[in-house]
Design a protein around this nucleic acid. Structure first.
Length: 582
RNA sequence: GUCCCCGUAGCUCAGGUGGAUAGAGCGUCGGAUUCCUAAUCCGAAGGCCACAGGUUCGAAUCCUGUCGGGGACACCA
């Protein structure tokens, strides 16, 4: 993809000027431009663009920033679209662009359309984003929601920034909690066959969502497993119940418009012998050894604690606090043992890995990071691994915390939530905070005070544009036109300036892997649009549609159309609908 | 005790991987609506960027320590 967007164009212009100074001997041969930035200054009165080049390069050039800046500015001013370049403050170079530059950018937005903001930055490298990965023991509840949305938006963002993305879900279908699920399902199965089961015993899942599972099992198998030994039905019921739970979970995710490409099964990983393979390799490289596990740190060790010899992975060699067991004393794999093999599997099919985890798993980051380093390094192809920890959402209702307990079966599901406030509100709200910060989500606020909700604010901006375009077409037969764009004034170009930052925001957000930045950017863009629009309430000459001045109207509608396009593109990345009317 | 995250306006939060005078929303106060639907806009007040050192031309941002909040420290998943 060619870099046709404005900021990139002028970054190149600055670099060309610097290269000339290298050629003329004003800058040393060894000069690199890595630290040189070209960006819009915070304070718009400083111009359209600002570069720190003189400040960054003064030291190697053995001069002071102002003097160096004086050498750079004349070269910049030769460019036809630069009206002025001057040294300011401690050595910034402030650049002003001719309005033609912004009008060109406006045309670029129109030309690129849905691709405006798309970047080639990722160079097609393959990133695996694993998110949600909720245990298949029940429907999705609020605790999963934030990670699901953040992961999904991040995946879209990386795609938009030029990566190939694999959206993956890891099904923990091998552990003890699946036995509990199977037993709970079996109870419901007996219930469906007409047995009186009474209250759900302690230790089983009480939720109603298992009732239809029991019915389905009764329908499929009749009473053949009703009175038999557990060993006869357990494996079957595990499989069946997990499959049913995954159907439930997929349906819940679909409500948020989240769809994974790959569902990886932990049980399948075991069947394929992957953990054993990893262990063999690690043992051969002295990264797994038989040793005694340290007693748990902190307060008192558990009462039944006794030292046992277990196969341990040398995660401490990679920065973890201690070595971690990959197998239990009963010979089964630990969760970590499987997870290690799982990540190695993923790494073999991608150039980079990202996991989205709940913050309560923070303690296991180091060991997995260690395992990925050890295994991918050993395989001769180190794969970068990044974990995004998503903090808990404190669910509130009118200022009061909403208590949730999975044990009692009393929890707010994603389905409840989407039904109550809508998909777009859930998604956008989850993205209006950086993920590693704790957040509150108050139903009452989000629903009742909906007009104060940022998602409506942004959507309304888009709706206003759509409405204006419709009205112009229906009532005046006017459509956007590029013919008179030179009649656009400073107010209009201000909107273009903001819109032109979208590609930069996309790249910055993708680099930092922080989709929430797009949400904040869209809010700012919407704010500019609303301000512009409202100015037309008082002064009819400032409206998109100016009666009897169809040339100016066409140009303003062209602008409106372009802003709408950027809003659509940004909302698209976040998976939020750009509505036509509200 | 160890590790991770957080600490910015009264409240909820941004702050582009070191830049110029720290920004929004809500709330408070004062304005704008015979409308391209105000789910909007304009203005005012409100700050020791937790605290103390350090790094450098320059720090809310990076480093160290202290304090405060949250979370994790099992062969669970």
């Amino acid at each position: 993809m060619t870099d046709t967007t404005l900021y990139k164009t002028f970054a190149a212009v600055v670099e060309d000027a610097l290269s000339e100074l290298v050629a003329s001997g004003d800058l040393p041969e060894s000069t690199t431009f890595e630290r040189v930035t070209v960006e819009p200054p915070r304070d718009p009165s400083h111009g359209d663009l600002s570069t720190n080049a003189a400040m960054v390069l003064a030291k190697p050039a053995k001069t002071n920033p102002r003097a160096l800046a004086e050498k750079i500015t004349p070269k910049l001013e030769l460019h036809p679209l630069i009206t002025s370049a001057e040294a300011a403050g401690p050595g910034f170079i402030n650049i002003r662009l001719s309005s033609t530059a912004w009008i060109d950018e406006l045309k670029t937005i129109d030309e690129l359309g849905a691709s405006y903001g798309r970047s080639g930055m990722g160079e097609g490298t393959k990133v695996n984003v694993e998110y949600v990965s909720a245990n298949p023991t029940g429907p999705m509840h609020m605790g999963h929601c934030r990670g699901a949305v953040v992961g999904d938006a991040l995946a879209s963002l990386l795609e938009f920034a030029g990566h190939e993305v694999i959206r993956e879900y890891y099904i923990n279908d091998a552990g003890g909690q699946v036995d509990t699920l199977a037993r709970s399902a079996h109870l419901r199965y007996r219930e469906a066959l007409g047995e009186e089961i009474g209250p759900i015993p302690e230790g089983l899942y009480p939720g109603d969502y298992l009732v239809p599972v029991g019915q389905a099992l009764a329908h499929e198998f009749g009473d053949q497993y009703a009175g038999t030994q557990e060993a006869e039905w357990l494996p079957l019921f595990r499989k069946q119940a997990v499959a049913k739970m995954m159907d439930l979970i997929k349906a819940d995710l679909a409500l948020l418009n989240i769809h994974h490409d790959v569902f990886a099964s932990e049980a399948a990983l075991h069947e394929a012998g992957k953990p054993a393979e990893a262990e063999a390799w690690l043992r051969a490289h002295d990264l797994v050894y038989d040793g005694v596990l340290e007693a748990p740190k902190g307060k008192a060790p558990p009462e039944d604690w006794e030292p046992v010899e277990l196969p341990l992975f040398r995660s401490s060699k990679y920065g973890d606090d201690q070595d971690r067991p990959i197998k239990k004393s009963n010979g089964q794999w630990t969760y970590f043992g499987a997870d290690l093999a799982y990540h190695f599997e993923k790494a073999s099919k991608a150039d980079a890995l990202i996991d989205i985890w709940g913050a309560d798993h923070a303690g296991t980051v180091k060991r997995i990071r260690a395992a990925v380093s050890a295994l991918t390094e050993g395989a001769g192809r180190e794969v970068p691994f990044d974990v995004k920890l998503v903090q808990m959402v404190q669910l509130m209702r009118a200022g009061e915390p909403v208590k949730m307990s999975k044990r009692s079966g009393n929890f707010i599901t994603i389905a409840d939530m989407v039904e109550e406030v809508g998909k777009d509100v859930v998604r956008f709200t989850m993205l209006t905070r950086k993920p590693e910060a704790q957040m509150e989500f108050d139903f009452a606020k989000v629903v009742e005070a909906s007009k104060d909700n940022p998602v409506y604010y942004v959507q309304y901006a888009h709706a206003r544009i759509s409405r204006s375009l419709r009205k112009a077409a229906d009532e005046h037969a006017i459509t956007p036109s590029a013919d008179d764009l030179d009649r656009l004034g400073e107010d209009e170009l201000g909107l273009v300036r903001r819109a032109a930052q979208f590609p930069r925001e996309v790249e910055a957000a993708a680099r930092a892997r922080e989709p929430h930045r797009i949400a904040f950017y869209l809010y700012d863009l919407a704010s500019d649009l609303h301000a512009f629009y409202t100015a037309g309430n008082k002064d009819t000459q400032k409206r998109f549609i100016v009666e009897h001045d169809w040339g100016l109207s066409g140009a303003r509608l062209f602008l409106a159309d372009a802003i709408g396009q950027v809003l659509r593109n940004g909302l698209g990345v976040l998976g939020v609908e750009a509505v036509e009317s509200m």
